[in-house]
């Protein structure tokens, strides 16, 4: 009984988000020249992969009731050493292993501190963020790495006109969706987010799940980093900007996740990330200044959060 209501409500929220997105797209395509051209659609989707991938990881984290401020920083801290090895030795396998390894180490630091030491996620991931950022700056001296091997750049090539990163992203998104919506583990994630104590009492090893979630988030950050490095043929401490963190969190929240946990789904998060990407594409195509874009984005974030709040009250 309760579950059907929950799932109905979830569907309803999805529907509303989808409807809003469709209306948004219609308005945009009417207002902006070239918006729905094939080139631009692919362009937007390609830009979506980075923030989208981070947003997938963030969705997992938000569902279990945590937050991870370190994701964009981990992306850089993990990708940079891997890229350095790759450009020096040309060995892609070692490079990718290092990227994932460093990412997982950061994820484990977060996970242990939050799940085992029961520290507040915000503080833990904030200090991880500062360290990860400093790490990336220190090993590169702020100088970016370039000249990655061709085998690695395979990830950046196109099939026809579609860059390979787009199908990779959507495949990963579908897998994540299946894990969250169809498996036992997905239900446990939601359960922990709704009430950790209840979950623990009903025999779930909550600390293990929370620990794993932070590692999962770091892996998503690593994949995002790998795709981004392949797409741009570089890695460095300025790979992603300061706004990426805010964008990721906003995208997940726009997509229906809640900072208090237990809510959120992959479908919504992908739409949220798409929404954020489209805003900046729209601003460039219209020739507005970037700063007008910031204003528009800020207002929209506040309004959407306010609407979300109203929706959840009723």
């Amino acid at each position: 009984m309760i579950r059907t209501i929950v799932s109905d409500r979830k569907k309803l929220l999805d529907l509303i988000t989808l409807l809003a997105a469709v209306i948004f797209v219609i308005i945009l395509s009417a207002a902006v020249p070239n918006f729905l051209s094939l080139n631009n659609v692919i362009n937007v989707l390609e830009q979506l992969t980075t923030i989208g991938m981070l947003c997938l990881g963030m969705t997992f984290i938000l569902i279990i009731g945590g937050i991870d401020l370190s994701m964009p920083a981990v992306l850089m801290a993990a990708t940079v050493p891997g890229a350095m090895i790759m450009s020096k030795t040309g060995n892609v396998l070692v490079g990718v292993v290092i990227i994932l390894g460093v990412g997982i180490i950061f994820g484990m630091i977060n996970g242990i501190a939050i799940a085992k030491a029961r520290m507040i996620p915000f503080i833990v991931t904030l200090s991880t963020q500062i360290i990860a950022n400093g790490f990336a700056v220190m090993i590169t001296n702020s100088k970016s790495v370039f000249g990655l091997p061709d085998v690695f750049l395979f990830l950046g090539i196109k099939i026809g006109i579609v860059p390979i990163s787009i199908p990779i992203f959507f495949i990963i998104a579908v897998i994540s969706h299946i894990i969250l919506a169809k498996t036992k583990y997905g239900r446990i994630f939601y359960m922990i987010g709704q009430n950790e104590n209840t979950a623990r009492i009903s025999g779930i090893r909550t600390d293990l799940y929370i620990f794993c979630t932070y590692i999962i988030a770091s892996i998503y950050a690593c994949i995002a980093g790998i795709l981004l490095a392949a797409r741009t043929n570089m890695a460095g401490a300025t790979m992603v900007g300061n706004t990426m963190l805010t964008d990721t969190i906003s995208a997940a929240v726009i997509g229906g996740a809640s900072l208090s946990g237990g809510k959120g789904n992959i479908f919504g998060s992908v739409l949220g990330a798409l929404f954020i990407t489209v805003i900046s594409n729209f601003i460039n195509l219209m020739g507005y200044s970037y700063y007008v874009g910031l204003i528009i984005k800020g207002v929209l974030i506040v309004i959407i959060i306010a609407l979300d709040r109203l929706r959840n009250r009723e």
């Binding site: 906003s250 970037y290 700063y291 874009g293 910031l294 204003i295 984005k297 800020g298 959060i305 709040r309």
Partner: peptide, 27 residues
């Protein structure tokens, strides 16, 4: 007002304000 009267999550609301204010300032 956003946090008390609209009862928004303080972190998200001020994150939105952060983006907005920066936009206004640079503009």
């Amino acid at each position: 007002i956003l946090v008390t009267y609209c009862k928004l999550n303080s972190m998200l609301a001020t994150l939105g304000m952060m983006t907005l204010l920066r936009g206004i300032a640079l503009n």
